[in-house]
Computed example of a mutant assay.
Amino acid sequence: MIDAFRTQDSGDTTNIADGTAVTLTTAPSGPAPGSATPDAAPQGPSAPDSSLLDLSVLDLAAVEAAVRKAAADEIMPRFQQLAAEDIVQKNGPHDLVTVADRLAEEHLTAALTALLPGSKVVGEEAVHADPKVLDALHGDAPVWIVDPVDGTRQFVHGDPGFATLVALAHHGEVLASWTYAPALDLMAVARRGAGAELNGVPLHTGSPAADAVLDVAISHFDFTSDDEKRVLAALDTNGVAPRPCGSAGLEYLHIARGEIDAIAFSWENAWDHAAGLLLVHEAGGASGTLAGQPFRIGGGNALPFTAARDAETARRILGLLAAAN
Results as ranks from 00 to 15, higher is better:
305 F>P: 00
110 A>P: 00
57 V>R: 15
143 V>I: 04
185 D>L: 02
316 R>D: 08
183 A>G: 05
142 P>M: 04
250 L>C: 12
229 K>R: 15
167 A>S: 12
14 T>A: 15
210 A>Y: 00
39 D>V: 14
264 A>H: 08
4 A>T: 09
230 R>H: 14
99 V>E: 10
5 F>M: 08
8 Q>C: 03
157 H>Y: 06
110 A>G: 10
263 I>M: 10
199 N>T: 08
123 G>L: 03
163 A>D: 06
51 S>R: 15
101 D>H: 10
219 S>G: 15
233 A>I: 07
47 A>N: 11
96 L>A: 14
166 V>M: 06
124 E>L: 04
78 R>W: 10
64 E>K: 08
105 E>L: 01
34 G>T: 12
205 T>S: 05
75 I>H: 02
274 A>E: 07
74 E>S: 07
174 V>S: 04
211 D>R: 07
68 R>N: 10
16 I>H: 05
213 V>N: 09
198 L>T: 05
250 L>K: 06
292 G>D: 10
96 L>K: 11
249 G>E: 12
311 A>C: 00
89 Q>A: 14
215 D>L: 09
95 D>R: 09
313 T>D: 06
102 R>T: 12
160 P>S: 09
46 S>H: 07
206 G>P: 07
284 G>K: 03
167 A>R: 04
103 L>T: 15
317 I>H: 06
216 V>Y: 09
312 E>C: 00
291 A>Y: 03
25 T>E: 08
31 P>T: 03
251 E>Y: 05
295 F>L: 04
181 A>P: 09
202 P>Y: 10
283 A>Y: 02
253 L>A: 05
79 F>A: 06
199 N>G: 09
56 S>N: 13
267 W>A: 10
88 V>E: 15
220 H>R: 13
322 A>P: 03
153 R>M: 11
321 L>Y: 06
107 H>I: 05
255 I>W: 09
103 L>Y: 06
154 Q>T: 02
7 T>Q: 13
129 A>Q: 14
290 L>W: 05
111 A>F: 07
101 D>N: 14
113 T>E: 03
154 Q>R: 11
16 I>T: 14
286 A>N: 01
103 L>F: 05
302 A>L: 00
226 D>G: 06
325 N>L: 05
282 E>Q: 08
80 Q>G: 10
42 P>D: 15
305 F>E: 01
281 H>N: 13
240 V>C: 14
110 A>R: 10
167 A>I: 01
156 V>S: 09
108 L>S: 06
301 N>G: 01
211 D>T: 12
178 W>D: 00
148 P>H: 09
195 G>L: 01
221 F>C: 02
87 I>E: 07
87 I>C: 12
131 P>V: 10
262 A>S: 12
193 G>T: 07
168 L>C: 08
3 D>P: 08
107 H>R: 14
320 L>Y: 05
223 F>L: 13
98 T>W: 03
82 L>A: 12
99 V>H: 11
274 A>Q: 09
293 Q>L: 02
74 E>Q: 15
69 K>P: 00
35 S>W: 07
43 Q>G: 13
